[in-house]
Design a protein around this nucleic acid. Structure first.
Length: 272
DNA sequence: ATGATCTCCTGAGCGC
DNA sequence: TGCGCTCAGGAGATCA
């Protein structure tokens, strides 16, 4: 569900509302997730939150004892602030009672997310194989060009590959390729050199535009106070199958194809 | 080693 | 109303 702009929106919410708070008590339901936590989540009890980092779609909640609580929302994960007595949504897996009389809850119907508590000094390994975050200065046009030169994967798969550049998902890959006028089917190594810098610029632009709108919401994405993002009205191709291409002067229409088992939306007329 | 496919899980939407 | 099918914003494991 959430990609970089949505996760960054949540990070900003946590920075405002969670940093400085202490966890009074933990209600962990022990639900089975795809990856178990290295340390029991009950050990969040008594910890104060110092700050929140993000790499790609992972959140790093830094705690006062040197521990790190890693959160990944998968497709349907939500982190939400609630009052103590608020009714509980289905698929609530974790409730953290905070010292300001509120609760932070993790809700995730599909349980594709990850909640992983690393002890003090324990190294977080989940992003070891990841490439640079798409909005980090370490991600440059040169880095992108070097990775593209050696990959025969179609551009769609290439940009979804978190080891190349981290943080993009299905929506923003489709949107960035449309903005740059590159076919999602074109092999990365076959993209004209002259198109690499524009692609780099459009990746940053679409992420920043979406972030400014609080992300994209279809069904269930909401930020930490339950508000949806509004970028859906600015999507050019994603979930617009059959609609006219929005590029000025382009007579094409948006097509949906399946690549590596996932939907790709693009205009075959102006994305070459 | 790279790229494609399968898998985890639940819910929504659709056609019949 | 209900059944069965397809699809969903992610990513790790497995297979060719």
């Amino acid at each position: 569900m959430p990609e970089l702009p949505e996760v960054e929106t949540i990070r900003l919410g946590l920075e405002r509302e969670l940093v400085g708070r202490t966890v009074v008590s933990v209600d962990w339901r022990g639900s089975a997730f795809r990856k178990a936590s290295p340390q029991p989540l009950n050990q969040l009890a008594g910890r104060q939150v110092l700050h929140i980092d993000r790499h790609a779609k992972f959140l790093f909640v830094r705690l006062d004892n040197g521990a790190t609580w890693l959160v990944h929302l998968g497709m349907t994960g939500k982190l939400l602030f609630h009052g103590l007595g608020d009714a509980e949504a289905p698929h609530t897996h974790l409730r953290l009672e905070l010292d300001d009389g509120r609760e932070l809850r993790y809700v995730d119907p599909r349980r594709f997310g990850m909640l992983r508590l690393y002890g003090p000094g324990q190294l977080v390994e989940d992003v070891d194989h990841y490439g640079p975050d798409a909005l980090d200065p370490a991600f440059t046009a040169t880095v992108l060009a070097d990775a593209m030169r050696t990959s025969r994967a179609p551009m769609k798969a290439f940009l979804l590959d978190q080891t190349k550049v981290a943080g993009l998902g299905n929506i923003y890959v489709c949107e960035a390729l449309w903005r740059a006028g590159i076919s999602p089917r074109r092999k990365a190594c076959n993209v004209a050199k002259a198109k690499v810098v524009p692609l780099y610029q459009q990746i940053l632009a679409v992420l920043q535009d979406a972030l400014a709108d609080g992300g994209t919401s279809f069904n269930d994405y909401v930020n930490t106070i339950g508000d949806p993002g509004t970028f859906v009205s600015n999507l050019a191709v994603f979930q617009r199958e059959g609609a006219p291409c929005l590029r000025p002067g382009c007579p094409g229409q948006v097509t949906r194809i399946v690549q590596s088992g996932r939907s790709t939306f693009y205009c075959s007329r102006c994305q070459r």
